[in-house]
């Protein structure tokens, strides 16, 4: 019995991005190690190196991968006999796997960095409390990171869909409304402006579930827009 087409899409995307992700995290880890070591030598460690380097970088990286789903990958899958609806379903599953793994790696980075900071005596001199200092913090971290990353992934897919379906100029015009999804989710958590995990403008659970709902709705919108899109002949 052959595998469901959406699962074949998922497997192919995981195969493609496993190597890409390995390179990405290898570079990130190298940057963090060099930065923390440099500031450590100067005894000027005031922030979490891991948080500083990964927080925005990961979100924008995930956003760009989302953009690539319709603009780069769609035609290859359709050309290999996959329907658009199976592609969008498989890409959605991939998005979940992808952002969850990135969020877990983000958490793992904190789990590794925290004892290093503790051993070096840097925790006490941080400008803000260390973001993930306990198992409970870790759970909250994931409950924030996964929905936020999902929104970035799906907003990226919507932006890419805008370009793929409507062309360059209308695609540019559609960036603000699609990017507004990200702003909305960020505002819910207060994550860019507030280093605390739970001290956002709305209750944490509302922000977390709201972001998940936003991602689901945006995913459905992308699926609908791609359902009838003609295949372009552009090269990748």
């Amino acid at each position: 019995m052959s595998t469901h087409p959406a699962l074949r899409v998922l497997r192919s995307l995981v195969r493609v991005y496993t190597r890409v992700a390995a390179w990405y995290w290898g570079i990130i880890v190298a940057i963090v190690v060099v930065l923390v070591a440099a500031f450590g030598v100067l005894d000027e460690v005031r922030i979490s190196g891991w948080s500083s380097v990964t927080t925005s970088a990961v979100k924008y990286w995930i956003l760009s991968i989302g953009v690539m789903m319709p603009t780069v990958h769609l035609r290859f899958f359709v050309a290999n006999g996959i329907t658009r609806r199976h592609f969008t379903l498989g890409a959605g599953l991939f998005g979940i796997v992808f952002v969850t793994s990135f969020s877990l790696i983000g958490l793992l980075g904190h789990a590794v960095e925290h004892p290093v900071y503790a051993a070096a005596g840097w925790l006490a001199q941080l400008d803000e409390p260390y973001l993930v200092g306990s198992v409970a913090d870790g759970a909250l971290y994931l409950a924030r990171a996964i929905p936020l990353h999902l929104v970035h992934f799906v907003a990226g897919a919507l932006i890419g869909t805008g370009f793929y379906r409507f062309g360059v100029w209308r695609g540019i015009a559609l960036i603000p409304p699609f990017a507004a999804l990200i702003v909305l989710a960020e505002v819910g958590f207060g994550s860019e402006w507030n280093p605390s995990l739970t001290d956002g403008p709305v209750p944490f659970a509302v922000a977390s579930l709201g972001a998940l709902a936003l991602a689901a709705l945006a995913g459905l919108a992308a699926r609908t827009l791609l359902a009838t899109v003609p295949l372009n002949r552009t090269t990748a």
Partner: peptide, 16 residues
């Protein structure tokens, strides 16, 4: 139908 069709175009459908 789409799974049973291979359409080879003048532009190769593979990532550069």
């Amino acid at each position: 139908v789409m799974g049973g069709t291979a359409f080879v175009r003048d532009v190769v459908d593979a990532t550069d």
